[in-house]
Design a binder for these strands. Structure first.
Length: 260
DNA sequence: ATGGCGAGTGTGACTCGA
């Protein structure tokens, strides 16, 4: 079973790029971020025609997450627990039933947080505290589960082409990395870094200033797995070349293969 | 990490993103 995450930066603008990638890569499960659409406006036919079950958690203009699954998808929940007043659509969960067992899949779009300091940065750190609570619950179940998405966190200097340029940015501030580390250190395994310890792998290149052409990227899309899930991992990768296609997202897909 | 972009909203020029 292949599970991928992809921040598509707008489902309407990315219909062609996303469907052509799905047709070629054919992942079993994809979590999407920044669909930038209400649920009623999501072009679900595009994906149902390709055999995917579609579950969305959208809002007008911004944010919005979704799960596409070719395998049975059960017990879908929307929203990150812990703040009933939070109206930003950034979290969705579902249980995917594979041939050998099930995995709980959480799709997330973690707040950017800029400018820092400020209310947006406070929201980011508060959101990460709530995510840590949910992550602890997932670990306590002692079953295969993963949290995949756009974390808006550069975990270490080797995850940026120019780390010095990000020192004061909400994606790389020490307090941001601390908050990420507190979640990871509960007992999760980050899929990509376990298999690819060397620097120079990125999942985002800005549209501006020739960032793609200069390979001025950052690695901010991650898949964190519970121990029971990590035991099932057979491979993981980043689909870098997708960034060089027509009308691309500024992010590329990141995936993990599970023996399920 | 800005000279340089792009999407959404909604038709002007703004907000938002990373």
């Amino acid at each position: 079973m292949r599970v991928a995450t992809f921040n598509i930066n707008g489902i309407k603008a990315r219909a062609e790029a996303l469907t052509s990638w799905l047709d070629e890569a054919s992942p079993d499960v994809v979590v999407l971020q920044e669909i930038k659409s209400v649920d009623e406006g999501f072009p679900r036919d595009l994906f149902e025609d390709r055999g995917y079950t579609v579950e969305t958690h959208g809002q007008k203009s911004f944010n919005g997450v979704a799960i596409l699954s070719k395998l049975p998808l059960e017990d879908v929940t929307r929203g990150l627990p812990g703040d009933d007043a939070d109206e930003q659509a950034r979290w969705i969960e579902g249980t995917v039933i594979g041939d050998q067992g099930a995995v709980r899949v959480c799709g997330l779009y973690l707040p950017n947080g800029n400018p820092a300091p400020g209310p947006k940065y406070d929201y980011k750190l508060g959101w990460m505290e709530r995510m840590r609570a949910r992550a602890a619950e997932l670990l306590a179940m002692e079953e295969p589960a993963l949290m995949a998405g756009d974390y808006n966190i550069i975990p270490q200097a080797e995850d940026a082409a120019k780390p010095d340029a990000w020192r004061e940015d909400a994606l790389f501030l020490l307090s941001s990395r601390d908050a990420y580390r507190r979640i990871l250190n509960l007992g999760f395994t980050e899929a990509f870094r376990t298999r690819h310890p060397e620097p120079g792998h990125y999942s985002f290149w800005d549209y501006q200033a020739g960032a793609w052409q200069r390979n001025n990227g950052i690695r901010i899309d991650h898949i964190l797995m519970t121990p029971q899930c990590a035991d099932l991992m057979t491979d993981t990768g980043i689909e870098k070349e997708v960034r060089g296609r027509d009308k691309p997202s500024d992010h590329v897909p990141v995936w993990v293969d599970l023996d399920l």
